[in-house]
Lab assay of single mutants.
Amino acid sequence: MAEQVALSRTQVCGILREELFQGDAFHQSDTHIFIIMGASGDLAKKKIYPTIWWLFRDGLLPENTFIVGYARSRLTVADIRKQSEPFFKATPEEKLKLEDFFARNSYVAGQYDDAASYQRLNSHMNALHLGSQANRLFYLALPPTVYEAVTKNIHESCMSQIGWNRIIVEKPFGRDLQSSDRLSNHISSLFREDQIYRIDHYLGKEMVQNLMVLRFANRIFGPIWNRDNIACVILTFKEPFGTEGRGGYFDEFGIIRDVMQNHLLQMLCLVAMEKPASTNSDDVRDEKVKVLKCISEVQANNVVLGQYVGNPDGEGEATKGYLDDPTVPRGSTTATFAAVVLYVENERWDGVPFILRCGKALNERKAEVRLQFHDVAGDIFHQQCKRNELVIRVQPNEAVYTKMMTKKPGMFFNPEESELDLTYGNRYKNVKLPDAYERLILDVFCGSQMHFVRSDELREAWRIFTPLLHQIELEKPKPIPYIYGSRGPTEADELMKRVGFQYEGTYKWVNP
């Protein structure tokens, strides 16, 4: 592979701008107003304001973009700056750019259920340069409990009458099928589907988006991507930290609602779906819905739930269990780990287990898709061969690698495990991989909904998990304890083995 010439960040961002501006969906010269509902909250200060700053800094926003914060707290732009700027990672050389960014910011205080507050917000936006005809993007960085009041008031008082209007809704989209349907029906009564952007930030990850290209742009994968060759698929999300004093919020939802029903299920769809007619948003989402419709409700015998306990040999936070978090209700049975087996009941995947695993306070930070292939028929190497695996590593250190057998150097035919490896950090030294939120917010500006969740996708996802969630809430089974920093409950490994996964433990990928 030829040595790549190092590029400056300015040059890299210039390439990104060229890609972005050559499309006809990006209205570079139009006025846009980006409204952050819930501007005083954690999500706004840690993710949304920093993301908008990065896009502005790199010249990736339309030229005439204004940012308006809205929340109940009586704040000023200076207050917003004070709480969000520490997350910007701005350099001293960017000081003038930073001043320009905050000059485009404003803030309006108001209630979430008060019509007069929204009329005041609308008047404020109209007073901005060309504000009355601007395109408006409303980001709901809010708890779902206020979605209905907020969307109703936005629709009645704050819509642009000339430009387009788009609304970005953060997960969780309800707690179960019934609450999700209620919320979807409410929002759909106010906005068209092409105006609604239900954001799952995992769909903005580079390697998640790469799944489609790997599958449908490489001839070698087509013939082997089926039940005849693939023994099982494992989708993993692991965090090495616990709730760390923020367990009160987590306890309301648990690990299945927080990660599995959305992030992991979306990745499953991209692995299992048929080739779409095109890369058009609805063509892709149509195929994802077909996959979900082929999955039956989760069966309790295919589920393992766990909850982390303190590690007596650990240090600091590792010595504390979930129930030691003062914000967690006493005696909570909320799971911090889950392993679930699903089956896609169609011709391509009949009988292939899709194993979804996620948890907190585990032994490493990792998100990946792992396809394990069947054993080689007619073994001539005296059971020395391990199964081939194709691994798409989402985070950290984005990579695609194939675990395969090669001859060990020497005189004899002794096979050993090795890999074919594409590590993004080595291959793409001159490429700026956008943060997931950067990519998705740019998608909203461009009107691309491919990486957002459609209402029928959402409904099918909740259909699969709601009976299990209701059973857990009714019966309150005690989750299996696992030690902070471990791989999780051993019962999860036993479940995976029972459905056909072979864990060798003899080879570990190392970032080159």
Rank of each mutant, 00 (worst) to 15 (best):
K45V: 08
S40T: 07
Q28A: 06
V108I: 09
G23N: 15
G131D: 08
L177V: 09
I199N: 03
Q28W: 12
I154Q: 00
F173M: 05
G222H: 08
K238W: 14
F221Y: 14
I154H: 00
K95I: 07
L98V: 09
E239W: 08
A134S: 15
K171D: 06
R17E: 05
A39V: 03
A90F: 04
W225A: 01
K46Y: 10
H155F: 08
D228L: 08
Q209L: 08
F237V: 07
T151I: 08
I162N: 12
R136N: 04
D194R: 08
H27Q: 13
P223G: 15
R166P: 01
F138L: 01
C13A: 06
V208A: 14
A115M: 09
S180F: 03
L60N: 04
N229M: 03
E252T: 12
V233C: 11
E148Q: 05
N218F: 00
I162L: 10
E170H: 12
S8Y: 03
M125K: 00
L16K: 05
D194A: 05
G245W: 06
H155E: 03
A44R: 00
Y118M: 13
E18T: 05
L203V: 15
P62R: 03
P144E: 05
S157G: 07
N135E: 02
H155D: 06
R9M: 05
A231S: 13
L190P: 02
I48V: 12
E193R: 01
C158H: 00
V77P: 07
K95E: 09
P50Q: 03
V108Q: 05
I224T: 12
L183E: 12
K46V: 06
L211M: 14
E206D: 14
N210V: 04
D251Y: 02
F56I: 03
I67Y: 03
E94F: 03
K47S: 14
L130V: 10
G163L: 00
G23E: 13
T145L: 15
L128F: 08
L130F: 11
L203M: 15
T51L: 03
L142R: 01
G248K: 14
V68A: 01
V233H: 01
K95F: 14
T145H: 14
T31Y: 07
A141G: 13
F101Q: 00
R136W: 01
N122K: 07
G131N: 09
T91D: 04
G242L: 04
G23M: 15
V77I: 13
H201F: 07
E252A: 09
N135A: 06
Q133A: 08
R120I: 09
Q4C: 08
Y249P: 13
F56K: 02
E148D: 14
R81Q: 04
L214S: 12
I15K: 05
R74K: 13
A6H: 08
I199A: 14
I15R: 04
S184F: 06
A25H: 14
I15L: 11
P50A: 03
S160I: 02
L55P: 01
D100N: 10
E239N: 06
K89R: 13
G247Y: 14
M207L: 13
L214K: 02
S8P: 03
C13H: 08
F191C: 02
G14S: 14
A109N: 08
A109L: 05
E206K: 04
A78C: 08
A115D: 10
T243F: 12
L128I: 07
F221L: 10
K46M: 07
R182N: 12
R192L: 15
S106K: 04
Y49W: 06
F21P: 04
F34Y: 08
R227K: 08
I67Q: 01
Y70M: 09
A103K: 13
S188A: 11
N226E: 04
A231F: 03
H201S: 10
D24H: 09
F26Y: 14
I187W: 03
A44D: 00
H186E: 10
D176L: 03
S73A: 04
I220F: 13
Y49K: 00
R57D: 01
I256Y: 01
P223C: 09
K171Q: 11
L214F: 05
S29Y: 13
A149S: 13
I52E: 00
V208M: 14
E3Y: 05
I52V: 05
Y139P: 01
I220C: 06
K205S: 14
C158T: 11
D113G: 11
V146S: 07
G248T: 12
G14V: 03
A217D: 05
F216C: 03
A78Y: 08
F241W: 10
L142Q: 15
V146T: 08
A44M: 02
S184K: 03
Q178G: 07
S8T: 14
F102K: 01
Q209H: 15
R166G: 01
G110Q: 01
G110M: 02
L55C: 10
E99A: 05
S189L: 09
M159F: 11
I256A: 02
F173L: 04
N105F: 08
F216A: 06
G59V: 01
H27P: 03
Y49V: 01
A90E: 03
T91M: 10
I187K: 02
V146I: 09
S180W: 04
H129C: 13
D228E: 14
A109G: 12
W53G: 00
Y139G: 01
Q4E: 11
Y49T: 00
R81E: 03
M207G: 10
M159D: 04
M159L: 11
D194T: 07
G248Q: 13
L98D: 00
S73T: 06
L214E: 02
L60D: 02
V213S: 08
G110K: 00
F56E: 01
E252R: 11
V169A: 07
E206R: 04
Y139N: 01
Q22I: 12
F221W: 10
P143F: 05
V5A: 10
E193F: 02
H124T: 06
A115G: 03
D79I: 04
